[in-house]
């Protein structure tokens, strides 16, 4: 039965829908990152955000249930990965870690294994909490996910037995090049695309259209949502870990409201209903943000310099989100996957 549904999903597969976004992400990452070290860092951070937005798309986009709680999976992923790769000296001597639980002091993995462990941690955390959260609908669900974020943050921020509490954990191993984060993101894109096409993804989208009707069709909404919540938690854990490995440090504040806002904004601006929306939203929001950041620092962008006061960037991003919600609630992609512009597809045919 699984095989059958897989094939059924594949019948709607379109080569351009997945391949072009992959090329765009890979191409622009490689091209831009070669231009300067600051751009390389920007690309690395953007890839982390893209991973996070993909994670949100899997759940929010398909189920229609808003989640403010994914930051908690990213936090957990970052903590796991950070503690697994920070050197023993730091764990033993940093002031903020003097109360760290001994097994965590001894916990040691290499970069690859730590990424795997953080993805698993994110997935397991989502599985545990999803059992409660997935029973809720609409607004109650939105607020409960907010509560989840609040609890996770509150505990990690204050407890110095399981992490650096409100301090930064320094010395986390960093990605030596762009290759690993890029490959991870491209892989995740392929997975998410096929997940959206799969029977599970399509069933979940059906529940979004009509709660009652799908219940009538014998779909177990809680279970279907739960599965996608787990997959999404897994990606979020990975995103959190990647973020730690780009910055070389872990600090819980990095994954709280600002992070939640920024990644949700990317998803909504691009359009939550499709992979292309997630990719587009991340590119547009990060791109605009980076350009404004450079202008805030009076650095020319393609030869143009505009002197902006510090703080303009965040205002523009928030404003962009609000304006998109007012004028195009389905995002720039309008909920569609990537399509070649009409004239291009005609050229190909002829």
């Amino acid at each position: 039965m699984f095989a059958k549904s897989w094939v059924k999903g594949l019948t709607r597969f379109s080569f351009t829908e997945i391949f072009i976004p992959l090329i765009i992400v890979a191409g622009s990452s490689l091209w831009l990152s070669g231009r300067s070290t600051s751009l390389l860092l920007f690309i690395k951070f953007t890839l982390c955000y893209l991973m996070m937005v993909l994670s949100l798309q899997v759940f929010v986009g398909n189920s229609g249930v808003l989640s403010f709680g994914h930051g908690s999976f990213a936090m957990v992923g970052a903590f796991v990965s950070g503690l697994a790769t920070a050197p023993l000296v730091i764990k033993q001597h940093a002031m903020s870690l003097s109360n760290l639980w001994q097994p965590l002091v001894d916990f040691k993995l290499n970069l690859g294994m730590s990424l795997l462990a953080s993805a698993i941690a994110g997935g397991v955390f989502a599985a545990l909490t999803g059992g409660f959260l997935m029973r809720l609908n609409g607004l109650a669900a939105g607020i409960a996910t907010f509560a989840l974020l609040g609890i996770t943050y509150n505990i990690l921020f204050n407890n110095n037995h399981i992490g650096p509490s409100n301090q930064a954990l320094p010395g986390v191993s960093q990605f030596s090049s762009l290759t690993l984060p890029l490959v991870l993101v491209l892989l995740a894109m392929v997975l998410v695309y096929f997940y959206n096409l799969s029977r599970l993804g399509r069933t979940l989208r059906a529940t979004r259209e009509d709660n009652m009707a799908s219940r009538g069709l014998g779909i177990n909404i809680v279970r279907v949502r739960w599965m996608s919540f787990m997959f999404s938690g897994l990606l979020a854990g990975l995103a959190g870990a990647m973020y730690a490995h780009v910055g070389g440090a872990v600090q819980v504040q990095d994954y709280y409201l600002g992070f939640t806002f920024f990644t949700l904004a990317m998803l909504i601006v691009g359009g939550s209903a499709s992979l292309w929306g997630a990719v587009l939203g991340t590119i547009v929001v990060s791109g605009v943000s980076q350009i404004l950041l450079m202008w805030e620092q009076s650095t020319p962008v393609l030869g143009v310099t505009i002197h902006l006061p510090i703080g303009t960037r965040a205002i523009v991003i928030a404003g962009m989100l609000v304006v998109i919600l007012l004028w195009r609630p389905n995002g720039i992609s309008n909920g569609n996957e990537f399509k070649l512009p009409n004239f291009l597809s005609k050229i190909k045919v002829s």
Binding site: L66, G142, L264, T312, I315, A318, G319, L321, V322, P329
Partner: peptide
């Protein structure tokens, strides 16, 4: 959900305006 995100966005927007 749309209104919730919009109010979240508006909240951030105003915080930034205050900061400025």
């Amino acid at each position: 959900a749309i209104m919730l995100v919009a109010s979240f966005g508006l909240s951030k927007l105003l915080q930034q305006v205050y900061e400025l």
